[in-house]
Each structure stands twice: as C-alpha cells, then as structure tokens.
Nucleic acid binder design. Sequence first.
DNA 1: CAGTTGTTGTGAAATAAATAACAGACGTAG
DNA 2: CTACGTCTGTTATTTATTTCACAACAACTG
Lengths: 208, 208
Amino acid sequence: MISDRTIERLSLYRWLLEMRIDPGTVNLFSHQLASMACVSPAQLRRDLMAIGYSGSPGKGYLVKDLARSIGSVLDGSEPSRVALVGMGNLGRAIVSFLRGRKSHLQIVATFDTDCRKTGRVISGCRCYNQDQIEEIVEKEKISVAVVTVPSGAAQMVADRLVNAGVTGILNYAPVPLKLPDCVYLENRDVTAALEKVAYFARKSTGRV
Amino acid sequence: MISDRTIERLSLYRWLLEMRIDPGTVNLFSHQLASMACVSPAQLRRDLMAIGYSGSPGKGYLVKDLARSIGSVLDGSEPSRVALVGMGNLGRAIVSFLRGRKSHLQIVATFDTDCRKTGRVISGCRCYNQDQIEEIVEKEKISVAVVTVPSGAAQMVADRLVNAGVTGILNYAPVPLKLPDCVYLENRDVTAALEKVAYFARKSTGRV
DNA sequence: CAGTTGTTGTGAAATAAATAACAGACGTAG
DNA sequence: CTACGTCTGTTATTTATTTCACAACAACTG
Ligand SMILES: NC(=O)c1ccc[n+]([C@@H]2O[C@H](COP(=O)([O-])OP(=O)(O)OC[C@H]3O[C@@H](n4cnc5c(N)ncnc54)[C@H](O)[C@@H]3O)[C@@H](O)[C@H]2O)c1
Ligand SMILES: NC(=O)c1ccc[n+]([C@@H]2O[C@H](COP(=O)([O-])OP(=O)(O)OC[C@H]3O[C@@H](n4cnc5c(N)ncnc54)[C@H](O)[C@@H]3O)[C@@H](O)[C@H]2O)c1
C-alpha cells in the first residue's frame, strides 16, 4: 500500500521528467530530481522504493525508464474515465484545462442543472442534465468525478455519483462530504487554503 | 506553533459554525461538530486546545463564542490583502468567487501580461500589468498572492512577488516553486490531485 | 442530596511520515 | 588492477500527527 503523499509526489516526479528535463538527458541522480521537486534526495529514493524502481549507483536513474515505471503504477491498464459536475466558472476552467492535455485521464462527460448549459458541448465536452448522472456514469464507465457545484448541492451530487459507481471524488465545494469508506475523497477547499496561507504569511517576516 | 493541518481544520470548523448551524443553536458538543467536519471528536478537542479555547462538560461549546475565538487566531488584527496573478480561466473563477464573499481576505489587485486584460476591471477587480507587481504590492500592502499563470511563468512571477514583500503564496501552477524559507507556500496541483484520486479510485471496490 | 449519565481537557500510546545514516555497488583515474 | 569518491537501497532514528483512555466535572434524576 503506497501512501497518498507518495502518490502525489510520484505524479510530480513524472511531470518533471516529461516536461522539465532536456530531451537529451538520458540519466540523472536522485539529488538532481529531488532538487527540481523541492524534496530531499532521501525522500525521493524512498518514494521510488515504494514502486520498486531501482537505479544504479554511479549512473542514477534512466529518465524515460523511470517515467514509464511511475506511469505503470499511477495509470491503470486502461485510461480512467472522468466526469465533472457543475459547469460554473470553476468547472469550465477545469474542463478546458483537462481537455488541453493528452493524458490517461479522459474527461468524458459533464453535468449541470442549468438548462442553458445542458444538452450542449461546453469547453469541448458534452454537458448532460444532472438527472442523467446514473445513466451516463454507467454507460460511460466513469470511475472518477470532480465536484464543482455550490456547497448546498455537493452532498446530493456526491451521493448520486457514488450510487452510480464512482469510486473517487475530487471535491471543490467547501463542504466536507460524508461518503462510504470505499470511496476515495480529496477535498480542495480554496477558502481554507487561502486562510491557511494568510495565517502563516502573517507569522512570517518575509526577510531571510 | 499551530500545525498547518490544524489551521486548515479550524477554518473548516468556523465555516460550519457560521454557515451550517441553525441560528437558534447556542451550544453544541464536540461529537456534533466533529461529525459535521468528518473528523474524530478527539481531534476536534485537540484542535481547540491548540487555540486555547475551552468548552464545558455538559454544555459543550458556545457556537458564536467559538467562531469568534477561531477568528481571533485565523484572522489577524486587520484584513489580509491578497493579489492574484494570471487572469486566465482559473484566475477569473477564483477572483469572482473571492469577490462574492465578505471576509477578512480582501482581493485588492490582479495582474496579467495580456494587454486585453490589463488596465481593465475584471470580475470586479482592477487588473494591472505584470510589471507593476512591485509598485502595487508595496502601495497596497499586499501580503498574500495567488498564482494562476502558465507553469513556465510561475517561478518568475513568484520571485517578483516575494521581492515585493509577499510572504504567502497559493500556487496553482503544476510546478514546484523555489522560494526562501521565510515565505509560506501552498501548492494546489490539480493534475497531481486528479491522478491521486484516479489511483485510489482504481484500488477501491466501490462496494461497502 | 447521592447517584448516574455524558462531556471535556489532556497525558500517554500508537501510528504515520520524514530524515539521517551507512553498507555495498558502480565508475573512474591512475 | 587497485584505490577512491560518489551514488543507491534500505534500515534505524527522529519528528509529527492522530487516537486512546481516563480523571474531573456539569447537569440531570429520583
Ligand atoms: N470559482 C472558484 O474559483 C471557486 C473557488 C473555491 C471554491 N469554489 C466552489 O466551487 C463551487 C462552484 O464554484 P463556481 O464559482 O464555479 O460557482 P458557479 O455558480 O459559477 O457554478 C456552479 C454551477 O453548478 C451548477 N449546479 C448547481 N446545482 C447543481 C446540481 N445540483 N447539479 C449540477 N449542477 C449544479 C450551476 O448551474 C452552476 O453552473 C462552489 O461550491 C464554490 O464554493 C469555487
Ligand atoms: N484551468 C484550470 O482549472 C487549471 C487547473 C489546474 C492547473 N491550472 C494551472 O493554472 C494555470 C493557469 O491556468 P488557466 O487555465 O487559467 O490558463 P490560462 O491560459 O487561461 O490563463 C493564464 C493567464 O496567465 C497570463 N499570463 C501569462 N504569463 C504571465 C505573466 N508572466 N504574468 C502575468 N500573467 C501571465 C495569461 O495572459 C493568461 O491570462 C496554469 O499553470 C495551469 O496549469 C489551471
């Protein structure tokens, strides 16, 4: 069982390997990648230990090989199919962002209640009415959902998604969702994050 | 020194107290608030211990009093002044969200390089040219910044913000920023979050 | 008023995560 | 070929966070 912190860092390592390494570079050392990721070399090596990847002393890690290796852990055998509920300002931004990058994460459906949005293709993705959630989630074999509805609707939307078979939810509404343990939930409460940053910013001098 | 996990939960507790408690309710028990926040009662009590707040056995906590008490820790003496850099899709969504809620967090300036955006008022907030960062940050006494520029520009933008005196950054670009220790940094990498959710969703059965 | 019930605050224990330390492997220089 | 310096994988240690457990206490009950 790999910890969720490690998974998140692995995702970052892969991004760095694919996007931030000069294509000519064939191998690199733990301290180099660690420095790019702003983690300690020991932490990096420990994370790679978790996925069973081995480099070699004196040569370090093979860039392409390591990226593939991380991918084989992070990505499943087939791409994950993703839905987003709540095509407001935030929802549209996330959808257009996800459409813009090729990835093993496919956004295949969006939902809303607003009839000005449903039935159309928005930001490159079909927007269905919210009461088609069960139908479409099953038909499209969706396993992951992003929730960007107002906080009052979030619990209800999440319940329907879970009932329909979704097993992972990324929640942007600032309300904590009550879900069965078997569903993985990640909350991204912007207000809490900003208040936290403001709190520690105040504690901080700004001078080194 | 209060841990950052605790600060984040405190922010959630306050939100629940202010938004999710029937106004008639004058006191409530740790297990009630804990259940709303999806944390254990022990955790809640421990978090309140950190801010030195005490309830009383048999009566629990006084709703208004507790909310004020959390506020006195989270909010400083005066409101934190916030800037956002990168008025793209995500940036505009966040600004309009922040404008919409009264709070001790005031968003007072935004920045971009795109001349179609600069010089105008967007989502209720003046948008300045990116090279005015130093000037405006100092003049407006901005201490917190949200970064929503493309990843290639994020480090440069962050450096300028820090130089100008910002001591806390909330970063949405998927690149890890190298900043001096005295600046508090919170990363919100959407891709990493989604990959994490997809990974654990795959491990999960979906059945209880 | 004594007994009962249910709650708080907090020290102690358990768990999780990060860091440090080091033996052994590899490449290289001479 | 040997000696040396550097790097890896992994174990041990430290640090951080959560959970447990329980004494002390307030409010009821009869
Ligand atoms: N905009 C941001 O940057 C931001 C930041 C932090 C948190 N949030 C949170 O994200 C959520 C959405 O924010 P937003 O700014 O996009 O708001 P928004 O009002 O622009 O969008 C909400 C969308 O959800 C739709 N909706 C409402 N009820 C629904 C339902 N039952 N099923 C499906 N769709 C439904 C609405 O029609 C609307 O399109 C809110 O909970 C907000 O608190 C947003
Ligand atoms: N849209 C999303 O939901 C989403 C999700 C995850 C991450 N992100 C990240 O957030 C960032 C922005 O995403 P977006 O979708 O809003 O992109 P976007 O292209 O819509 O917006 C980027 C904005 O930044 C401005 N900009 C570029 N260089 C700048 C500079 N040096 N100084 C100031 N402004 C500058 C551009 O003019 C543009 O307005 C990206 O790094 C992206 O990876 C976005």
